[in-house]
Design a protein around this nucleic acid. Structure first.
Lengths: 102, 102
DNA sequence: TAAACAAGTTTATTTTATAAACCAAATAAT
DNA sequence: ATTATTTGGTTTATAAAATAAACTTGTTTA
């Protein structure tokens, strides 16, 4: 009936991050922070979780002398996102149940 | 960019309950328990939260000698659910659903 | 009449989300 | 030149949430 929801994606901030990375394919920490409205601390933690799960790849580079944290979604992450959306739909598009109950 | 998600609905079990109540419009505790696969304790807690928020109405009756907890969605709950779905769409990169609901 | 069952509730524990506090380096101000 | 401020984060502490285990109350059933 209801498919289980990947707890890693069923989180407002992490979902926003994934959604963002799907549309831009590469983004810097400050940009994600601004787009999501998250605090730096919260964002840092949630990015770590996504990276640990292999949903995103984090590349730490430099932009001139400033550190630059680049994030992009991985194929695993993209698949997880799609699965999550499919699971969510089982909660959102429910037609009235006309089957017999026993 | 991303609309905030009502924390009361952004919960797997509570969302399942709401989804269920939208489709059947009235359901007993054991039925909800069976459909969602939740434990009784968890379900009891989450139903309370939904009721406290005014999203569902809980009526405690009897079915013969057995207690019977009846749940149904309220107009407030229905509105909240619809708003939640609209907010979610801002994360899913999906166009709003323009099909007619009957 | 004792044991098992049904229908929940309460409580305790684990997880999670989140922000506050912190750190290091670069730039700006005095 | 030294101090202050800003940038770009990380680490840690706390508040909130989810969840199941344990418990309660009444009802059948053996």
């Amino acid at each position: 009936m209801f498919k289980p929801l990947d707890p890693l994606l069923h989180s407002e901030l992490r979902l926003a991050v994934m959604s963002l990375l799907i549309s831009v394919d590469e983004a810097e920490f400050p940009y994600i922070k601004q787009q999501t409205g998250a605090t730096a601390g919260n964002l840092s933690v949630q990015l770590d979780k996504l990276a640990t799960a292999g949903y995103i790849a984090i590349e730490k580079t430099f932009k001139g002398k400033k550190p630059c944290t680049l994030c992009r979604i991985t194929p695993v992450g993209l698949k997880a996102f799609e699965d999550y959306v499919a699971a969510l739909r089982t909660y959102l598009n429910v037609k009235p149940d006309t089957t017999q109950q026993t």
